[in-house]
């Protein structure tokens, strides 16, 4: 009975699937899928060869500090960093006094309440504060940005495929739609060129991004450590910094990972030896060597018998 019912159910599902298959195949032949301009012009991110991308990789502290400087002087005008606290900047190699100074001098103040009047006010940031947002709320952010919302950057690297490589490619990927040619040498179709307030960027999913090119000229930021601030360098540094903000514990994770690996490898080798030892004679004929070897015992017994020793 179960088999008959099962057989009928099976035939039903297989039948409907085959009907679906045929209908779709006919449809696909009659209306072959067309390639959209997004598919023709979208580019995969370029690899920037970042230091942490290997299992033993660590951040480059100087690069993180430079990236932070780019964030502070360029990105922070529009993008919040709402999950990152000032105290976490320790991870960039700053000492407490330096972080206190950074928090104290941060251009945007933290929303607060006036202790005398109870009215809303702002105060200077403390170590324990998260980075204050440049806009009071989403409406204010959209109003200031042509109805586009600048995303929070704390997790932007984890929230995008290819992470920091994508950010780096995007920041350096702005092109002029009128003169741009893809690999096949085709110009961008008129309907895919940017409208008002949009900017052509082949690394962005639909090719037109609301963010104006943020890093436009060499020397836009004057690096404290004297590194030559080319557009490429700044894009790389800020991508590295954003990788750090998305996971400040990356270095600790890698370091802990190696310790765990070594511990587990030693433990597993010991467990394997214990296993082999316990199973030594469980799956095969036991052959005894040494004094307990039956042949040896027999020989000893024979010798004793010859000499007439009892037992």
């Amino acid at each position: 009975m179960v088999r008959i019912i099962g057989f009928l159910i099976g035939l039903g599902f297989v039948g409907v699937l085959l009907i679906s298959l045929i209908v779709n195949a006919v449809d696909a032949i009659q209306n072959p899928p067309v390639h959209t301009a997004e598919e023709e012009f979208h580019l995969e991110p370029r690899s920037a060869g970042f230091s942490w991308q290997k299992p033993w990789g660590q951040f480059d502290e100087a690069q993180l500090q430079r990236g932070f400087q780019v964030y502070k002087e360029v990105c922070a005008a529009c993008h919040s960093l709402k999950f990152v606290s000032f105290y976490e900047l320790e991870g960039l190699g700053y000492n407490e006094a330096e972080i206190k100074a950074i928090a104290n001098q941060w251009a945007i103040e933290v929303p607060s309440v006036n202790p005398d009047t109870g009215e809303n006010s702002t105060r200077k940031a403390l170590l324990s504060d998260r980075f204050p947002s440049p806009y009071a709320n989403e409406t204010a952010a959209r109003a200031a940005n042509n109805n586009a919302l600048p995303p929070d950057l704390s997790l932007i690297v984890e929230a995008r495929d290819d992470g920091a490589d994508y950010i780096y490619s995007l920041l350096t990927g702005y092109r002029n739609a009128a003169t741009y040619r893809n690999e096949a040498g085709e110009p961008v179709p008129q309907e895919n060129r940017p409208g008002t307030g949009l900017h052509f960027n082949p690394y962005f999913a639909n090719l037109n991004i609301a963010m104006p090119p943020p890093i436009v000229s060499n020397g836009q930021v004057t690096y404290a450590d004297g590194t030559n601030a080319t557009v490429d360098q700044m894009a790389k540094d800020v991508s590295a910094f954003l990788r750090w903000t998305s996971e400040p514990n990356l270095e600790r994770r890698h370091a802990a990972g190696w310790a765990v690996m070594i511990f587990l490898l030693v433990g597993t080798v010991l467990a394997y030896l214990a296993y082999r030892n316990i199973w030594a004679n469980a799956k095969r004929e036991v052959s005894i060597r040494g004094p307990l070897e039956p042949a040896f015992q027999q020989r000893m017994q024979d010798q004793k018998d010859e000499r007439g020793i009892a037992g």
């Binding site: 299992p55 994770r253 890698h254 802990a256 990972g257 765990v260 690996m261 587990l264 490898l265 433990g267 597993t268 467990a271 394997y272 214990a274 296993y275 316990i278 199973w279 469980a282």
Partner: peptide, 23 residues
């Protein structure tokens, strides 16, 4: 017998798991 074998199995499984967790 099988506690020993499982001990080894757990070791191998945890190594593979830790590769995902940490790397």
């Amino acid at each position: 017998f099988y506690t020993a074998k499982d001990g080894f199995g757990i070791g191998v499984a945890l190594i593979l798991f830790s590769i995902f967790v940490f790397f």
